[in-house]
Amino acid sequence: MSGEAIAFYMLAVLAAGSALGCVIATNIVRMALCLLGTLGAVALLYFLMAANFLGVIQLIVYAGGTLILIVFGIMVTSRMYGEKLKPRRSEALIGALVVLALFAGLVAILWRGPWVTVVPTEQPNSVAAIGQALLGTYLVPFELASVLLLAVMIGAAYLAQPAARNGRGTEREE
């Protein structure tokens, strides 16, 4: 077994285990911690696939930004000993059945899929290549993404401002 295979299986177990942990956990912060495990493992898988830049971006934007935002949101909206929001039995059962069927179907298809693969080549300077692609071929999506981010920034600031616009707003300090 090559080093790559060992690394892949370890990371795959970590990613899948964390994802299953997300499914099982009832405590919302534990879910976030499990998500951290998945994000980290997927980032390392990117490193394994020689997508270094993407792996680092995954760590810095996802784990260092989005996930902190999520934990922040949890802290504002949940209490440790508040009501436990457990999924309803029936919903969980139906969901599990559907998802398991879907997973079985996907695996069956993927396993037998006649994939035409190429031998992976190492990009000599993938960071520069990504930069050139972003400002060349993908310039329009790149600019659109920046406009979107601006809109999101303004929108999120507007949505989250503590003005009592609604009569039903419960006065609560954050």
Binding site: A12, A15, A16, A19, L20, C22, V23, T38, V42, L45, V99, L100, L102, F103, L106, V107, L110, W111
Partner: peptide, 9 residues
């Protein structure tokens, strides 16, 4: 397959 598992979760 790993991605399929993550997707289903």
């Amino acid at each position: 397959i790993l991605a399929a598992l993550l997707f289903c979760c």
